[in-house]
Design a protein around this nucleic acid. Structure first.
Lengths: 246, 246
DNA sequence: ATCGCAGTCAAACATCCGTTTGAATCGGAC
DNA sequence: GTCCGATTCAAACGGATGTTTGACTGCGAT
C-alpha cells in the first residue's frame, strides 16, 4: 500500500471536523509566521493539540495541508472583503475607489481573528506554489479588473496601459504597508508618537494621493489634446482663409 | 574543540579569495532563488565548484555565509545606485524625484550581472535576519530621508505625516513591480503584447503619477488654507499659520 | 630536505523533519 | 457483548541537510 490510508476524504463527523479545522487554523498561523519550508508538521500538530500523524490522516501530506489552508484563507477573504466594499456600482467613482482601498487594506491589516490570511496570500505572491493559479484567477484578476474600471472612470482620456499602470500604483501603495510592515515599524520605532499609520489614515492618504494623481494625469492629457486640436484648427483656419482669399 | 577551525578570518591569498568570492556569488544566486531555508549548502558549493566543507572553512556556517552575502549585495547596491542618481542637489525637485525613482527601480529590475541583489534585499524585508538592522540603518533610513526631502520641496504646505506617507507611496509603487513581479507577469501572460512595463516606462509612469499627486495635494491644502484664513481673517491668523505645519 | 600552514577533499556524523506503521481507543450498529 | 470503521497515538523509518573530521595537497620559509 503506497498511500498510507484510503483517503476517500474522511466523512465529516463531529470530532474529525474538529481536529481538521484546528489543524487548518494552526497550519495557517505556522505557515504565515515561518513560511512553507520552515514551518514544521510537528509544530503545527503541537499547536493544534493533535498527533503528528494527524496531518497525514486528514490531509495527504504537508503540501496538501498548505494548499487547503490557502484555499480556506482565500474563501474567507473573498466573502468577508468584497472588492466593492458593499458599495453600489453606480456610486461616484471616487467613492468606489475609497471603498476599494479600504477593503484592500482591511483585508491585510485587519486585526480581526485570523490575522494570518493576508500574510499567507502575500507569501504566495513572492514564492508561488501550485495554489498560485487559483489565487490569480479567482482573486487577483477580478479585483484588478474592478479597479481598472474605476480608474477608467476617473481618468477617461488616458491610454489603457496607463490605466493599468495606475491601478498597479494604487495596489502597490496599499501592499507596501503589508510587505514592509516590519521595516516601517522599525523605522518608526524610536519616535515618541510611534507608528502613525492606521487603517483610516492610510485609506484617506492612498485615496487622496491617487485621486489627485488621476485628476492631474487626466488634465495633462486633455491639455495636450486641446493644444494639438488647437494647432489643427489653426492649420485648418489658415487653409480656409487661404481658400477664401483665392 | 567546539569550533571546527580557528577562523582568524583566513588571510586573503590569491586562491582563497577566489573560492570565497565564488562562494558568495553562488550563494547569492541560490539564496535569491530559493530563500535561506530551501537553499542548500551542497547546491551552493556545487555551483561554486567547491567542496562541501568550503562553506564551513571560509565562513563559519550557512548563516554567516548568508549574512556575508547580504552585506556584499548591500555594499554593491549603495555604491552602484546612489539615491541621487548622480544628480546635483540643486536640480529641480521634480528631476530629482525622477532620478530617485529610476535609481530605485534599476536597483531591483536591472538585468545587470548580479541580478539577485534586489531579490535578496527584499527577502530580508519580509523575513528579517540579524542583517536586518544593517540594511535598515545604512540603506533604508538614509534613502527614505532623501526622498522625504524631495517630497517636502514638491509639496511644502502639507503636514509631516503626509510627507512621509507620500514618500511611502512612491516607494510602494516602485517596490510593487518587484514584489509582485511573478504575479504581474502571469497576469499578462496571455496578452499578445506581453508585459509592457520596462524600466523607462515605469520610471515615467511612477514619476508622473506621483508628481501629479503631490501637485494636487499641495493645491488642495493651499485652497483649504486660503478659505480658512479668509473666513478667520480677523481672528488668529498668526496662530493658525504657526500650527499649520508639524 | 623539511616543516608549517592554508586550502581542499571524500566520507561520515548528527539532527531534523515528513512520512509511515501498527497497535490502541472510541463510538455507534447489530 | 461484539464487531467494525473512524480516529488517535507512540514509535520508528528514511531521506535530506548542516556540520565535522582527518587525511591529503601544494607552496613558501627555514
Amino acid at each position: 500500500m503506497t498511500r498510507t490510508r484510503s483517503h476517500p476524504k474522511p466523512l465529516e463527523t463531529e470530532s474529525s471536523l474538529d481536529t481538521r479545522a484546528r489543524l487548518i487554523d494552526a497550519a495557517g498561523e505556522e505557515f504565515a509566521e515561518h513560511g512553507f519550508a520552515k514551518a514544521t508538521v510537528r509544530d503545527i500538530c503541537a499547536r493544534a493539540g493533535a498527533n503528528i500523524a494527524a496531518v497525514n490522516y486528514h490531509f495527504r501530506d504537508k503540501e496538501t495541508l498548505y494548499l487547503e489552508t490557502l484555499r480556506h484563507a482565500h474563501r474567507y477573504s473573498i466573502t468577508h472583503y468584497p472588492h466593492d466594499g458593499g458599495l453600489h456600482a453606480d456610486a461616484p467613482a471616487s467613492d468606489r475607489l475609497r471603498a476599494f482601498v479600504r477593503a484592500f487594506l482591511a483585508k491585510m491589516l485587519d486585526a480581526k481573528r485570523p490575522r494570518w490570511h493576508g500574510r499567507l496570500i502575500s507569501r504566495e505572491m513572492t514564492e508561488p506554489t501550485p495554489a498560485f493559479s487559483l489565487l490569480l484567477e479567482e482573486g487577483v484578476r477580478p479585483q484588478f479588473g474592478a479597479l481598472c474600471a474605476i480608474v477608467r472612470e476617473l481618468a477617461p482620456s488616458i491610454k489603457d496601459v496607463q490605466i493599468e499602470a495606475g491601478a498597479a500604483s494604487v495596489i502597490g501603495q496599499a501592499l507596501h504597508y503589508h510587505h514592509c510592515n516590519l521595516m516601517m515599524k522599525r523605522l518608526y520605532a524610536e519616535r515618541k508618537d510611534g507608528f502613525p499609520f492606521d487603517l483610516e489614515f492610510l485609506t484617506d492618504h492612498i485615496t487622496e494621493f491617487s485621486l489627485s494623481a488621476f485628476e492631474g494625469l487626466e488634465r495633462k492629457v486633455r491639455m495636450n489634446d486641446a493644444r494639438q486640436s488647437h494647432r489643427r484648427q489653426n492649420k485648418q483656419r489658415v487653409r480656409e482663409s487661404k481658400g477664401r482669399n483665392r
